[in-house]
Every structure is written in C-alpha cells, then in structure tokens.
Amino acid sequence: MNLTLKIWRQKNATSKGKFVTYKVSDISSNSSFLEMMDVLNESLVLKGDDPVAFDHDCREGICGACSMYINGRPHGPDKAVTTCQLHMRRFNDGDTIVIEPWRARPFPVLKDLIVDRSAFDKIIQAGGYVSVNTGGVPDANAIPISKVNADLSMDAAACIGCGACVAACKNASAMLFVSAKVSQFALLPQGRTEAAERVQAMVAEMDNQGFGNCTNTGACEAECPKEISISNIARMNREFLSARICAPKVKEGSGGGI
C-alpha cells in the first residue's frame, strides 16, 4: 500500500517543530506500524536525511516505550493496542496518516516523536511501592488474598506506563496512571499498610508535575492499551478522601518515611 505521512519533526527540546509530509510506498499490510516507520527511516537515511526519532523497544506491547499519537488518537485507531502492535492492515491504500508526539506540559518533546516521561517515574518514587527491604519477609502464602482482589489488583498492575492516558485526556491528566498504581496496592493486604500515606504522596507529586485534573471524560480508559478501568480512579479518590479525613496527622520524619 502507498501512504502519505504527516509527521511532527523537531530537532531537539528547544527548537520549534513543524509537520513534514512524506510518502511511503509498497508497504505490506502485514507489517506493523513501526515496521512501516522503519521503511520510511531506511529511505530517509539512504537519502542522507535525518530519520524520524521515536521511542520503542520491546515491540510487543509491554515495555510502554512506543508512543505515537496517530490520527487524533494515542496508539492509533485500534482498541487495546500499543503503537508497536498496530498493524498496517488497519489502514487503507492511499490514506493520509498524521503522527504527533504525546502532548502534555510534563512530557516535553525531546526530538521528533520522543517525549520525556520521567514525570511518571517521579510519581512512582513518591510512593508507588511497599516499603519493605530485601529479606526478612513472611512466607508468600502466610496471608491469603481473595482471588477477586488479587485479580483486580492485577488488572490495575497491568499498566505499562506508556502515557497514552495523558495523551488522550483533554486535560493531560495522569489520574489513570496514578490510580492504577494506587489501586494495585490498595487491593492487597501488603499494600494496605501504607495506603493512606501512599495515595496522598502520589497525588501530590502528580499535581506537582503539572498534569491536568480529571473531568471523568473516560478518554483514558478508552485509549489505554491495557484497558485499565477508570473505576481505579474512583478507588483512588475514595482512598484519598478517607486518608485525608481519617488518617492521623503524622509529623514529617516521625515514621512511614514514604
């Protein structure tokens, strides 16, 4: 198939970018979207042009590196896929495809389609863990966990941290990402111990990074490649409220250390 691509090109974080139009031809409908990009890049390199830079690694939908905003939707038109899992059979011969980077203040563009998503790491660092050191933990079967909760926890934990939720949200809100981590732990007895501190710390860091607020539009859920539910956002709100209202005031440094 032959395609017209309109791709955001930006040399580096400080330069101004623009859309550049490219034509690619003889693309197999069996190839993946990124393989189509490879073909484009190969031809650019041979011409001596700078190839389009984009993040990718596993190419099987799990590392969360790939991140293209394709025709108005993060990861393109298919449901529940990442960009690397999108296949060209989804498009028609002669289509024009507009490819943009994730857009959000906390995700500045570094080059072309590559953005800096370290804001997500910062949020996890604020409390996305159970504070246990290596060793000295109880036997794995010491605490039974209801299968329902274990499964719900796993649903939330499936997040790959790609940022499609932020990219899709009209407010560039990170609530789905943050709530997925909060929920994963809130549903497990191991995570309950610090649930109150965790949710407050993570929400605070999320705000601090400059993400938008949640208007409950549901765009995040619709675009999440792992189909993480916005019920996690409700759970986080619940956790947050109960933490704010019920949790005792803890002096800085007097414990927890989350």
Partner: peptide, 10 residues
C-alpha cells in the same frame, strides 16, 4: 516471598 511482600499480584 519477597515479591509477594512487595505487592506483586501473582
């Protein structure tokens, strides 16, 4: 044991 304590949802 360690992973369960960390909240890995096996």
């Amino acid at each position: 044991d360690q992973c369960v304590a960390q909240g890995v949802p096996f």
